[in-house]
């Protein structure tokens, strides 16, 4: 444990935490756009800047250290955040997220040259990072500098996209568009059909590509994933019913799952999964 000071108040922090972590735990407001709890700190939006010894640092990437004296409300911090918001508002004047945040800092209209006709992407890279962490890396940034954008390989339908929609669902400015029906989805211009339940043939909530992807990643058969939750539960229920009738039997026939110790009271079901399923 280390003690750090934020805006004059001391806080206990654990080694390895970032200043932003500590601030969030203690309800100290620090705005951020590219930060996502599930992802490694990125440090790109520069909204979460704080002041440390007169220097501006991004709190999301700043590890806590003994006797740090952090200021989150200094004039310099405010100025930098305002510039960032002014810039973002110029980039995407119609983004609700940016407008709201800018209003908190007293900015209602950018003083800079506003881009009309551009989408609301702020290049926080949450989409690409989420995608990469899942293991598909279907989208990435393309080009450099002020021309940079999020794109698919060669601007075509992304071959590695599995249609999980994580990119769109995590976009802070809701820029990534998709269409969704019970039968399928369209994202990044690529159409996806929902996989059919291997038992009842109803549409599941996973795309065919997701099923293939998860199967490949885990080493389990595709049927394992292509199952609607009703059928899965039904199957489980049947399994348990049989277990009660005939305890000790090896069931879960289809994929060779075994239950170790099976007692009527405490059922601890642990399907043994191949190692490949481990987090990368």
């Amino acid at each position: 444990m280390v003690t750090i000071t934020i805006d004059g108040i001391e806080y206990e922090a654990r080694e390895g935490q970032t200043v932003l972590d500590v601030a969030k735990e203690n309800n100290i407001p620090i705005p951020s756009l590219c930060h996502h709890e599930a992802l490694k700190p990125w440090g790109a939006c520069r909204m979460c800047v704080v002041e440390l010894n007169g220097k501006i640092m991004a709190s999301c990437t700043l590890p806590v250290a003994k006797d740090q004296n952090i200021k989150t409300k200094s004039e310099l911090v405010k100025t930098v955040r305002k510039v960032v918001l002014n810039l973002l508002l110029a980039r995407c004047p119609h983004s609700k997220t940016i407008q709201q945040l800018a209003r908190l800092y007293g900015i209602t209209k950018t003083t800079l040259k506003a881009d009309e006709g551009r989408d609301n992407c702020i290049l926080c890279n949450v989409c690409t990072r989420v995608c990469a962490q899942l293991g598909s890396s279907a989208i990435a940034t393309v080009k450099r500098g002020s021309e940079k954008e999020i794109g698919t390989p060669f601007g075509e339908k992304p071959p590695d996209c599995i249609g999980c929609l994580s990119c769109a669902r995590n976009c802070p400015t809701e820029t990534i568009k998709f269409e969704e029906t019970d039968a399928g989805r369209i994202i990044w211009n690529k159409s996806f059909e929902m996989a059919e339940c291997s038992i009842c043939k109803a549409k599941t909530v996973l795309t065919k590509e997701q099923v293939v992807f998860f199967a490949k990643k885990s080493g389990l058969p595709e049927e394992y994933f292509a199952k609607c939750d009703e059928c899965a539960r039904k199957e489980t229920a049947e399994t348990f019913a049989q277990l009660v009738i005939n305890p000790g039997a090896h069931i879960m026939k289809a994929w060779g799952f075994t239950f170790g110790k099976l007692e009527a009271k405490a059922i601890t079901a642990s399907p043994v999964l191949p190692q490949k399923f481990e987090r990368s």
Binding site: V80, L112, K113, L123, R144, G145
Partner: peptide, 21 residues
């Protein structure tokens, strides 16, 4: 520098573009 900025962080990417305008 605007052309050579990697475009990762907002101040450099957007700021240099606005500055050049």
């Amino acid at each position: 520098l605007m052309g050579e900025s990697c475009g990762k962080c907002v101040p450099c990417r957007e700021g240099l573009r606005q500055m050049s305008y």
